[in-house]
Write a protein that binds this DNA or RNA. Structure first.
Length: 412
RNA sequence: GGAGGGAUACCCAAGUGGCCAAAGGGGGCAGACUGUAAAUCUGUUGUCGCUGACUUCGAUGGUUCGAAUCCAUCUCCCUCCA
C-alpha cells in the first residue's frame, strides 16, 4: 500500500487517465486520491460483471487492467458478480430483451469468471461479491422506494431504450430496473470509483446520483473505450466470435492477434498491454512514418499479449510456430496423429472425402469435396486433384487449407 | 378484448404459382497475391452414392400437373386501440 501511492496526485491522475475515455468527475477523483493518501485508507474500486458470458476476453481486460493500476497504487477492488441482475439481463446495447438466465447457469458462469479475473487483478487486493446477497433481500416496499429515485423520462433518455421505444420494440419493465439495481450495488458497497466501458455510462452515472440521494459520497465514474474484436469492426464479444480469450492456448492468442487489421495495432497496445506510454508513442510514430513493417509491430503485440497470459517462453514458442506455419508455410512442430479406418479404404484406393470428414476437417462430404476441388487439400505437400488417392503410408501428412494438419497412422 | 404487421438458409434481406436450392449484403471457407492469419482480388457457401437425386422458406393439412408463393388451422413475435 506504499510505493506508488506516494506519487504526486497529478502523476496518479495521469496514469489513471491513460486510455480512459472519460472520467466523471476529475476533481472528485483528485479529492478522493488526496484523502486516501492522507488517511492511508485505500479507495474502493468497483466493477460489475454480468455473468452471461463465462469467458473473459481481451475486451474485459481493458477495464480489468485499469483496476489493476489502481491496485498497484494501493487501492482495493470489489468485483460484483451480477448473479441477481444476471437473471434479468443487462439491456445495455441490446436491441432485444435478453434471455433470462437460470440460477444454475449464473452460478456456473460466475465461478468461471472468478478463476479468470485474477490473471489480471491482484488477488490480495480484490474482493468478490455477488449482488444477490443484498438484492434478493429487498422487499416490494424497498423496491418501490428505489424506483422513486428515478423517473421514466430519465430512463428513457438512454439511447438504447429510446431506440427500442421509438422502433416499437418491446421493453420489459424489469429491464428498466437494471440501472437502478446496478446503482444500488454501488451504494451497498460504498464504491469510491466505478469502472466500466463507455456503454455503461448510464448505469454508472445512475450510481452517482443514487448514492447522493441516499446521502453517500458519489462515486467517480471512469469509462474505458470498448475494444474492437479481431474483425476490427464490432466490439469484441464471445457471441460474435471475434474475441481473444485470456484462457486460450498460446498459439491461438498469438495467431488471433496477428489476424487483427493493421489499423488496430496501436489501439491494442494502448488498451490491452502493459506497455509504457512513452513506448506507445514511439510505436505510433514509427507506424506513421512508415519505416517499420506493420507486421513486425503486430508480431511484437502478439508476443506481448501471449506473454501476458502464458509467460515469455510460451510466447516465443508461439511466435516460432507462427513463423513456421504461416510465414514459411512449413509444417508445425507437433502434428496430431490420426488412425485411418479400414472403412475408407477399398479396392479403388482411399476415399479422401470420407477421410477429411472423419478427421474432423469438415462437417460434410460436400464440404470435403469442395475443399478438394478448390485445391486446398495436400498430401505430403502435393495437391490432391481427385476424390480418391491410391495409397497412404504411415506418417504421411494430410493438410486442408492453411491451418489444418494431421499425420496419418495406419493400423497394421 | 378488438384491429393490423411479421416469421425465408449461419445472420440481415429479396422473392407473391413453374425459369427457386431460392437475388443481394454480411459472415465463414478456399485460392491468388503479399511485408502478416492485415489489405486487395477471385471462387465457394443445404445434403447425398454429385453432370443426377433428395430435403429446405415458422408448423400442420389442403387446392394445383406444379407452391417459399394460393387457402385453412395452429404456434411464436411485434405494433396500434382498449
Amino acid at each position: 500500500m506504499e510505493g506508488l501511492n506516494m506519487m504526486s496526485i497529478e502523476e496518479q491522475v495521469k496514469i489513471i487517465g491513460k486510455g480512459a475515455d472519460e472520467i466523471i468527475n476529475i476533481d472528485d477523483l483528485k479529492r478522493k486520491l488526496e484523502r486516501s493518501q492522507k488517511t492511508g485508507i485505500p479507495l474502493l474500486i468497483k466493477l460489475g460483471l454480468d455473468p452471461t458470458a463465462p469467458d473473459i476476453h481481451l475486451g474485459h481486460t481493458v477495464v480489468l487492467r485499469k483496476i489493476r493500476q489502481f491496485q498497484d497504487m494501493g487501492h482495493r477492488a470489489v468485483i460484483i458478480i451480477g448473479d441477481f441482475t444476471g437473471m434479468i439481463g443487462d439491456p445495455t446495447g441490446r436491441s432485444k430483451t435478453r434471455k433470462q438466465l437460470s440460477r444454475q447457469e449464473v452460478i456456473e458462469n460466475a465461478r468461471t469468471y472468478e478463476n479468470q479475473i485474477f490473471k489480471v487483478l491482484d488477488k490480495e487486493k480484490t474482493e468478490v461479491r455477488f449482488n444477490s446477497e443484498w438484492l434478493s433481500k429487498l422487499n416490494l416496499e424497498d423496491v418501490i422506494r428505489l424506483a422513486s429515485k428515478c423517473t421514466v423520462a430519465r430512463i428513457l433518455e438512454r439511447e438504447d431504450f429510446q431506440k427500442r421505444f421509438n422502433n416499437h420494440e418491446s421493453i420489459g419493465i424489469h429491464e428498466l430496473f437494471y440501472p437502478l439495481m446496478q446503482a444500488y450495488d454501488s451504494f451497498v458497497v460504498k464504491a469510491d470509483v466505478e469502472l466500466g466501458g463507455t456503454d455503461q455510462r448510464f448505469n454508472i452515472l445512475m450510481g452517482r446520483s443514487l448514492q447522493k440521494d441516499f446521502g453517500q459520497e458519489s462515486q467517480v465514474a471512469i469509462f474505458m473505450p470498448i475494444l474492437e474484436g479481431t474483425d476490427g469492426i464490432e466490439k469484441m464479444s464471445k457471441s460474435l466470435g471475434n474475441y481473444i480469450g485470456v484462457d486460450e492456448e498460446p498459439n491461438d492468442i498469438y495467431g488471433k492477434t496477428m489476424s487483427i487489421p493493421d489499423k488496430l495495432i496501436t489501439r491494442y497496445f494502448e488498451l490491452v498491454t502493459d506497455i509504457h506510454p512513452d513506448e506507445l508513442d514511439e510505436i505510433k510514430k514509427s507506424l506513421n512514418t512508415g519505416n517499420v513493417n506493420p507486421r513486425d509491430v503486430k508480431m511484437r503485440l502478439a508476443r506481448e499479449l501471449t506473454a501476458l497470459y502464458h509467460g515469455h517462453e510460451a510466447a516465443v514458442v508461439a511466435e516460432n510456430h507462427f513463423k513456421k506455419v504461416f510465414q514459411k508455410h512449413e509444417l508445425p512442430e507437433e502434428l496430431e496423429e490420426y488412425e485411418v479406418q479400414q472403412s475408407i479404404i477399398d479396392s479403388d484406393g482411399i476415399d479422401m472425402v470420407k477421410l477429411l470428414v472423419s478427421v474432423g476437417f469438415c462437417p460434410s462430404n460436400s464440404e470435403a469435396r469442395r475443399l478438394i476441388f478448390q485445391g486446398a487439400v495436400k498430401v505430403n505437400g502435393n495437391k490432391i486433384e481427385t476424390l480418391k488417392i491410391d495409397n497412404l503410408c504411415n506418417g504421411d501428412i494430410i493438410q486442408a487449407g492453411k491451418l489444418k494438419f494431421v499425420k496419418v497412422k495406419i493400423k497394421s
